Simulated assay, not measured.
Amino acid sequence: MTTQASTDSLAGRRFVLAPNIAPNWPQTVRIFIGLSAVCLGIGVVCAACGLWPILTFAGLEVLALGAALYVSARRSLDREVINVTDNNIRIEKGRGRVEQAYEMERAWTQVELRRLSRRWDETQLVLRSRDREVTLGSFLDPDERLSLARELKGCIGPMARCGGTLFRTLGEKAG
């Protein structure tokens, strides 16, 4: 998983979530060509020795490998972008481009980290505002989801915006 969090006092905060599961496309193609050459090479040698059914299974193996690498490469394009500004939260989800976008009011949004009972130590990160819920980071592991939840709780919700101002004001008065 790759998480980028940028802070800009004027623009708010931006979180970019991406799975870290595959090499880039040219590397994936080179891996596929190399493994296919070895597999089909062994199949051709076996077919030349009279064991022709092995070539059929080698071809099926190469097709399965190609499908698995393609699915993995497509999943590596998944992105979730969370933009937190003064009053709004914009969540964009997609694969290579924005496919879903959600808008929520910052003051009315809650960050929830739910423990799922059906899986061992599995959690679900949800942003909830009024009647809308958006699940985030489904590809994150539990520790990464917990870390993201802490970061989001620090900048989202009714007390996040005024809490930072209150603490700064109290700190200035004390100092």
Rank of each mutant, 00 (worst) to 15 (best):
C39K: 00
F32W: 12
R79L: 04
L69D: 08
F15V: 06
C46F: 15
P142N: 00
L51N: 14
G59C: 06
R97T: 12
T2Y: 11
S76G: 12
I42K: 03
G175T: 11
R132E: 12
R128G: 01
A174V: 10
R115S: 13
E112F: 08
R13V: 14
G163A: 01
A174F: 07
C49V: 12
R128S: 13
E105F: 12
R128F: 02
V134M: 01
C49G: 14
Q27L: 11
T123N: 11
G41E: 06
G137D: 10
T28G: 07
T109A: 04
E151C: 02
P23N: 08
F167I: 07
D131E: 10
G171R: 07
P158H: 12
T109N: 00
I33L: 14
L69K: 04
G163F: 03
I91V: 15
S36E: 03
K173T: 11
C46K: 05
W108V: 06
L140Y: 10
A149D: 04
I31H: 07
M1S: 13
N88E: 15
V45H: 00
T169D: 06
T123M: 02
V62A: 00
V16K: 01
A18F: 02
R128K: 12
V71Y: 11
R90E: 15
L77E: 13
G59T: 08
L148T: 03
A101D: 12
F139Y: 15
W108M: 09
E105H: 13
N24V: 02
G164K: 08
S9N: 08
E144P: 00
G59Q: 03
R118W: 14
N88L: 15
G50L: 01
Q4E: 13
Q27C: 06
R30S: 14
F139I: 08
P19H: 05
L166F: 13
I82A: 00
T28P: 00
R168D: 14
M1G: 11
N87S: 14
R95A: 12
V126W: 01
W120S: 11
R97C: 05
G175Y: 02
V29M: 06
G154I: 05
V38M: 10
E92G: 06
D131Y: 03
S129T: 04
N83L: 13
A68C: 08
T135M: 01
P19W: 03
V134C: 03
T7K: 07
G34F: 10
M159I: 00
A37R: 02
A68L: 12
P158E: 12
Q4Y: 11
V134E: 06
I89A: 05
R106I: 01
R106E: 08
E105W: 10
A58D: 05
Q27Y: 08
E133G: 00
G66C: 05
T2W: 06
L152C: 02
Y70S: 14
L146N: 10
W120D: 09
T165S: 06
A107I: 09
I31F: 15
R106Y: 09
V98D: 03
L10D: 15
P19T: 07
R118D: 14
L152S: 01
T56L: 14
V44K: 01
L166D: 09
G41V: 00
V98M: 01
E133H: 05
S36G: 12
